[in-house]
Design a protein around this nucleic acid. Structure first.
Lengths: 212, 212
DNA sequence: GTCAATTTTGCAGACCGTGCATCTTTGCAT
DNA sequence: ATGCAAAGATGCACGGTCTGCAAAATTGAC
């Protein structure tokens, strides 16, 4: 089992705040060390030392060493869930999802340097990249549930036992990963939001062959 | 580094055949043991013993213990790549991909029992499921390349530095995972191919809100 | 049958990850 | 403030994972 604050957003108690700080310190130390020495040369002991806690405590926060490189922001899923639920009813499901994700990504931009390092680390070791992809699955399941709820609220009937929302969440996740990866590789050529927008346009059009 | 046969398809040499047999034996032993005792109670020692090789040899075939549960068929990617390249030019990219994947999944059905066990094992431990998702990424990159080549062949111009094929591959991968997962959870209610077809129909339509 | 190339194996050793007992810190009621 | 109960941090022990390395066994070609 994993120690996790019950509340996704800013909690008042000192305990909660300290825990979040420790977690953030561990994650940041892991990413910075990995960016410098390569992810597979960074031991749990080094990460723990850099964050000022014991090795045993590291494992109170992360289930495995690699999770420290992968899970940057544990609350992102909860925030997106809220954003989907609070989206204007006029938006289509895909649009609501796009807006929620765009907002989340814009927030990530605020810690630009760390985010950049993180992308660099993942890109340097495909093994971690794969793990990162898998890590988004829990968030996707959450999103699917939020989408299903939104659909019920906006009047859609029984949506074929939930296939549609799950597909939507999974596809949107794939879209975000593709956008980030593509932008990461062509960073100078295009702004991230442009790539992101193009990807969702393609999705909404049903992925037609790009006629010349 | 990983021991891998250079040739994806059936190789003639005795060496190649033996290596594939050993690999398959290890993977099958891993899945069967995991289905019986739970994946996290199965040690590398047990898997190796069941396959009749030493522990050290296990690690000559798999980079990690968990890979044995995740990587069933190492050649599936190569086969799909071929299928995409050989698809009739009349098909849209998404259709070509759908056909390639359908053929691959139909082949998997032939080892029905093992495939079923495999899905069961992954579903039982989300951790492995996530890992499995990530494992498909290399295959997706391969597929993206094949799609790009196909696009060049059928006359599409420079497709925005490859964003489109990568998106297509990633989205199709997400679609397959969603199909398998959904079918796995509602196994009695619907045939897999029906779910698969519905998912790709939704994709081609641009993921519209399911109007009642 | 012999030889070179490849694969398997055992062994040593570093690192990972967990259960348990203990100690320290936090939150709260008084 | 002070003491108490809950929760987190820590150390320790132990089993499992994974990697070099060198020796033994197997395969393929002559």
């Amino acid at each position: 089992m994993q120690l996790m604050s019950e509340k996704g957003a800013a909690g008042g108690g000192l305990r909660e705040r300290k825990k979040r700080a420790t977690r953030a310190a561990l994650a940041e130390a892991a990413v910075r060390l990995a960016a410098e020495h390569g992810a597979d040369k960074v031991t749990v002991e080094a990460i723990s030392a850099a964050a000022g806690v014991s090795v045993r405590t590291f494992f109170n926060y992360f289930d495995s060493r690699e999770d420290a490189f992968v899970v940057i922001d544990a609350d992102a899923g909860a925030r997106m869930r809220r954003a989907v639920l609070d989206a204007p009813a006029a938006l289509s499901p895909l649009e609501a999802l796009r807006e929620a994700m765009a907002a989340e990504l814009a927030e990530a931009e605020q810690q630009h340097e760390l985010w950049r390092l993180h992308a660099e680390v993942l890109h340097a070791s495909p093994h971690l990249l794969a793990r990162g992809v898998g890590a988004h699955m829990a968030a996707e399941a959450d999103l699917a549930e939020a989408l299903a709820e939104r659909l019920r609220a906006t009047g859609g009937g029984a949506t074929a036992s939930g296939l549609y929302p799950r597909l939507l969440a999974a596809v949107a996740g794939a879209a975000v990963r593709t956008s980030v990866d593509h932008w990461s590789a062509h960073q100078q050529e295009a702004a991230f939001l442009d790539v992101f927008h193009e990807v969702f346009t393609l999705l909404a059009a049903g992925l037609p062959a790009p006629s010349a």
